[in-house]
Design a protein around this nucleic acid. Sequence first.
DNA 1: ACTATTCAACTAGCATGTCAGTTCAGCATC
DNA 2: GATGCTGAACTGACATGCTAGTTGAATAGT
Lengths: 231, 231
Amino acid sequence: MTVRWDSPETGAAAAYREIKQRIVNLEYQPGEKLSEARLAAELPFGRSPIRSALAQLKSEGWIEVSPQSGSFVKALTDREISDMTSLRVMLEMHCARIGAARMTDADLAKLRSAFATLGPLADNGDGEAFIEVDTVLHLALYRSTDNQMIAGILLDLRDKVQWIRRACAVSSERVKEGFAELKPILQALLLRDPEAAAERMRIHIESSAAFCRMVDHTASRRARFPTGIPG
Amino acid sequence: MTVRWDSPETGAAAAYREIKQRIVNLEYQPGEKLSEARLAAELPFGRSPIRSALAQLKSEGWIEVSPQSGSFVKALTDREISDMTSLRVMLEMHCARIGAARMTDADLAKLRSAFATLGPLADNGDGEAFIEVDTVLHLALYRSTDNQMIAGILLDLRDKVQWIRRACAVSSERVKEGFAELKPILQALLLRDPEAAAERMRIHIESSAAFCRMVDHTASRRARFPTGIPG
DNA sequence: ACTATTCAACTAGCATGTCAGTTCAGCATC
DNA sequence: GATGCTGAACTGACATGCTAGTTGAATAGT
């Protein structure tokens, strides 16, 4: 990225990480106003790095900036979630296909061990364990696909999915179900069956998306049309 | 998605457009240094909007910023071009599939007329005519696919492709060839054959990518992306 | 009670100045 | 000539103050 790959993190980058994390963790809720001044007071940064961070968050779709008015945490519309899902399905299926063909035996062994360790917890509805094993599986696929651009998009979408997951409470039932969807993916990878892996991945992504719908729509509508909803 | 739909373009946005256009047009060549001060002197903007514009260009991969040193126009590596092509193939094939199924007769009629008007020129090797009809075809497909996230990615990749096209001189032979690849795509769309449209699109994207290789004019130290997928 | 107007507080956009890190031409040394 | 050192010029990161646009509650008018 930069010439100095060991350079210390700039304030702007640190502010970006911090604010984004607070958004994902719902400490800053959808629709909430995030003014530069407020953030500069709340965080150990001046207005300049905060401003840079907000610009990046805006370009990545986490917030909306209204000139001379304020910055607001965005709420994803059903439409955006649906768009996101289509894209994820396509890219994740691609990664699953490639992964089934190219993943090394060492990677597969690591996956198997992760499933063995965390599986029993996930089977009991442990959300954190599920997220952990889900993450291990997907990152391994991104790595074996070896396409930075696709990986970058999927990592970004993953953050958004985490966000949505927190916005709609996830039942332990859904956790068990989700983990049950992961198992056949691993099986297909072990059998090096690209089409089966892709198909199981499709099922996994689509069913996880079906459960997610963002809660706070009113705040977003208020933020977007403060003087009244047109029409 | 801001509150003010009719708000005038900010200086930062105008600077972004201008600088990006100059990069795509090779007025600023790959590897060239673009300091804030220089751009502020060269363009009718102060350092602040220039700084915002550079931040956005950085996050979109057009430039690299080296702290306390300078901003440089990025040169795409063969690897990045290859990554880009894989992604484009996948997404464009998806759009072609959806387009073949969902495109309206009115849209198809417009496409046919565009081919009729510009086709003879493109057949003679007219690069501008080819780009025009190519753009019309692809944008129509993006529109019919009706997924803003995918369309956004493809539009960005399209800018990069235009950039690469200028970086490697395109022969009129290649123009004729490229246009010849578009015809079967239109045919497949008219026949509403999704698989044929997707397959022809794949051929089109891959063959156009095969001709492009970027030249870094400075060829000096160039940092690679050291960050991989963690895990 | 209800609407229209006003105005003070608040907002992001931007200019400008400062600062610390980077760079490289030119000098010193071998 | 080759190598190491120095310092001045340059760079992006950031702080700060100002401006113009936005907002919403208090106010005036009906």
